[in-house]
């Protein structure tokens, strides 16, 4: 559905996007992750025809974004990182204005606007002034707007930024609903753990280049998932640390309050070795739990925490 080939965008001497290759299949939710200034927003702006690339090509639904701009815009719903609102309009009028801008016939508009208002739970606010809505409500209105012309592709630039936990959960639920409706969604966010729960694929970008692209399942072995284990023993933390540190597979053992955090060397197997060593060494084991490597850790590991 979305295909990017050798996409490059330069601003003077700064290369914001550098030979980026990306492919997103229809119906997928793609999480676009990267530190500030990595090139996520620039890539999205090129996809929605707000910017021209310096070189390379981008296609949405088989249409070249630089040559078939109008057709691309009909197929895409874009929500920018900061959503501006018209202060002279009410919620219903705002949505109907965009419905008219997308060429929807007058007689069909009312039903469509009511439909998206219901989907985004904004029916009670349809007569409110747009600029009087709270941030969370405005984000929901933004989502309602991008759905007004029933686009195949949604490009959402940090839709959950600045929202409280409840509003974030609501947005996440809404995205799940949109996935069920068969939309292809490209979403960027700094709330990485949220993407982990909803995305089929993720792409980690840094310096305008994709440093990782694949499914969440693919990212785990590559980053040595399960390489950390939480261990709680009844007594004798020091003895346990001594036993485990002596193992060649173990990189480090640290005391983390009530339990020990054991880190394996990359590529080493964890199967049974800790339990065996501790029991044989006479330490009473209470529990042993592999630590999940979260997307945040993957992000930090892949980007090495370099923020521009």
């Amino acid at each position: 559905m979305i295909e990017i080939t050798k996409l490059t965008k330069r601003f003077g001497s700064l290369t914001a996007v550098d030979s980026l290759d990306l492919r997103i299949e229809a119906g997928d939710i793609f999480g676009f992750i990267g530190p500030n200034g990595a090139g996520k927003t620039t890539t999205m702006r090129i996809l929605v025809t707000l910017m021209e690339p310096t070189s390379g090509a981008a296609f949405i639904d088989g249409l070249d974004v630089t040559k078939k701009g109008k057709d691309v815009r009909r197929r895409v719903g874009y929500m920018p990182d900061f959503m501006g609102v018209y202060d002279d309009l009410k919620v219903f009028e705002y949505l109907e204005f965009f419905a008219a801008a997308f060429g929807i016939e007058y007689r069909k508009r009312k039903a469509i606007v009511e439909g998206v208002l219901e989907l985004t739970d904004l029916v009670s606010k349809q007569s409110a002034a747009v600029d009087s809505l709270s941030r969370g409500m405005q984000q929901r209105l933004g989502l309602a707007r991008v759905l007004i012309h029933d686009p195949k592709v949604l490009i959402l630039d940090e839709p959950a930024s600045g929202l409280d936990p409840r509003a974030r959960i609501e947005i996440r639920e809404l995205l799940r609903e949109l996935k069920r409706m068969g939309k292809t969604i490209m979403i960027s966010s700094h709330i990485l753990s949220e993407l982990e729960e909803i995305c089929d694929q993720v792409g980690i970008i840094e310096h305008g280049q994709l440093v990782f692209g694949g499914t969440i399942e693919e990212i785990r072995p590559r980053l040595g998932l399960h390489s950390k284990v939480r261990v709680k023993v009844l007594d004798g933390d020091e003895q346990a640390i001594e036993l485990l540190t002596a193992l060649p597979q173990i990189e480090s053992v640290e005391s983390a309050g009530e339990y020990l955090s054991v880190t394996f060397r990359e590529g080493e197997q964890t199967d049974g070795i800790i339990a065996r060593t501790l029991v044989n060494g006479g330490v009473d084991l209470v529990y042993l739990q592999p630590e999940q490597l979260k997307l945040d850790d993957a992000f930090l590991k892949l980007t090495k925490g370099i923020v521009h």
């Binding site: 009028e93 109907e96 204005f97 801008a101 508009r109 349809q126 409110a128 600029d131 009087s132 809505l133």
Partner: peptide
């Protein structure tokens, strides 16, 4: 004004009814 969610307080002459979009959307707006 920002906290006034209805917007009615600062919009004294604000049209109570919703106006439908007719004709060219940009001209209407």
């Amino acid at each position: 004004a920002r906290l006034d969610s209805s917007g009615s307080n600062r919009r004294w002459l604000w049209h109570r009814s919703i106006r439908r979009v007719k004709g060219a959307p940009i001209v209407w707006k």
